[in-house]
Design a binder for these strands. Sequence first.
DNA 1: CTGTTAGCGCCTTCAT
DNA 2: ATGAAGGCGCTAACAG
Lengths: 345, 345
Amino acid sequence: MATGATQSNGTTIYSVAERAGVSIASVSRVLQGSTAVSEKTRKRVLDAAEELKYVPLAAARSLAVRHHEAHGLVLPELSGPYYSELLMGFESRAADLGQSVVLMLAEGKDNLPAAVRKLATRVDGLAMLGSAAIPESTVTALHGSKPVVLIAGDPRTDVDTVTSENTHSAEELTSHVLGHGRRTLRFVGDPDSGPDVRDRYAGFLAAHSAAGLTAAEPLRISLREADGTALADRILSGDLATDALVCANDELALALIKRLREGGTRVPDDVAVVGWDDVMTARYIEPALTTVRQPVRELGAQAAERLHQRVTGGSVEAGPLVIPTHLVLRSSCGCAPGHRPDPPD
Amino acid sequence: MATGATQSNGTTIYSVAERAGVSIASVSRVLQGSTAVSEKTRKRVLDAAEELKYVPLAAARSLAVRHHEAHGLVLPELSGPYYSELLMGFESRAADLGQSVVLMLAEGKDNLPAAVRKLATRVDGLAMLGSAAIPESTVTALHGSKPVVLIAGDPRTDVDTVTSENTHSAEELTSHVLGHGRRTLRFVGDPDSGPDVRDRYAGFLAAHSAAGLTAAEPLRISLREADGTALADRILSGDLATDALVCANDELALALIKRLREGGTRVPDDVAVVGWDDVMTARYIEPALTTVRQPVRELGAQAAERLHQRVTGGSVEAGPLVIPTHLVLRSSCGCAPGHRPDPPD
DNA sequence: CTGTTAGCGCCTTCAT
DNA sequence: ATGAAGGCGCTAACAG
């Protein structure tokens, strides 16, 4: 029963037991708040534990109880407010549920599937972004052994999913732009790059149909600033006619606005530009950007929640979870400045 | 020797051993690349492991080898690019070193010390932000039992620290503004809110001294947008004379610029405004913001690196690590637009 | 109510 | 080179 050494702070359950003059079983009992324990020993244990600042070694406990009290989260990367918000929501809820979160960023990992499998080795469940480039085969394999929830991917029923609404909002947004009298709208972003963009494009299409119009082909570029700038140059050069750009995200919209204006094009007078995400810059740029706000934080929280339910084998709840988004109308779409008040943060 | 159940994917070292027709010792050996093993058994084991997609259960391994192969990171929160960048740098380097990262956000935790202690229970070392509000007593206590590195706190020698340079850059920045002929500079931010702001203020002071000037008292407000806006209102109302605002961060600078201009004050003509961090918006706002860029990502990477060295008991390396920053001159300080090219991202 | 005793899955001497 | 066996720290029956 001799103990040894390297615990988080050196003290083990044996130290405490010894100090309290009881068996390790008793220590374990009071610390787990389990079975009845005499008030006397309870106190002695508590005192000893306190004095020694004892905290059970996670690994040992995990091995014994056969779960980790930790959730895994894999995100593509962390630039921009989107993933950060998501992460905050996830961490916060996970913490509330008593779960640690071990994070993994897909970017830069050469062997993602292996990395994910390794991650799975130390958590009770995994949440990952649909866009994190995890092979479907890996997902299903994982799903077979422990709970998995997919975030912002395609809603489906074989695996838990939590996503934010895209199509409907995109249709609403597009209709709004059409309502300003614009007729040569272009969707900016590649629908094939992921379910989000695809659905937004679907909404774009739907709005056109509803108005008896036919939409032009999407301008398939990446969601990065550089591509937006390049596209602006194309427009400035005159080889692309349009009076409204519906962008798949704000970064693109922002880059477009900036470059277009530098090139002498008036926004929104000559061409309206709207985005998606409501990043901070959207409020600061001139003209202020009309965009769509997603409850990203909530998304993350829901993912953690859902995951936890699965892990604890709780009630299965409903199927795919989709969280509503809402339009943030400012002036880049053609609305008069100050036309609508900026919603509170 | 019967095995049981819930491993990450069900398979244990026993499964593999059985499948390969060897003892678990052999399996362990080849998987650890340890002692000599006959080429034949090595192959059999490798094959079996591969077929079963075996990955050792982290908890079991941890318990046996007495370390977790994981780094802990505690950040205040995650809004803005600063912490995200830091986290990316940290995660990336940690992953390269084969370490998982378990993240904890201080915001919202009611009992931080306890939470941190619990976190310490599942990692080999801890990195935390100086501003994460962890009581000094907790830090030293932790430090006693396992490696700790402090990020962006006060450089010190009893605990490892990695910080980015503040004072010198702040002096340089302030001198630059003075060089534009401004004479009524005000520092915006509370030097007592943390070492970063304190050091930047020190640089502000130093620049004044060097110019034979005496600096005004700092305008002690929080680093948040709302406070910046409020301050702008004060200035607009005329009860605060100044021709240049040296802000402790970009968020403040941005809010000030926006509101000041809305109020009819010309920036930089009437009052110059400079910030700190070089957030994305800094490039988009009109006028483009002069600010200071910190190699935040590198900061995070260095923290992970340092931590790992300590954990593996490697060479102790030098003392406090401070990473240089650099000025990003744009036009809000009074420089002519396009005066200096925007450095590449 | 409390102590004793198996494991949890894996690593690592220690023999062989 | 390989197998047997003990132990890592903790939990959970199982006897008292």
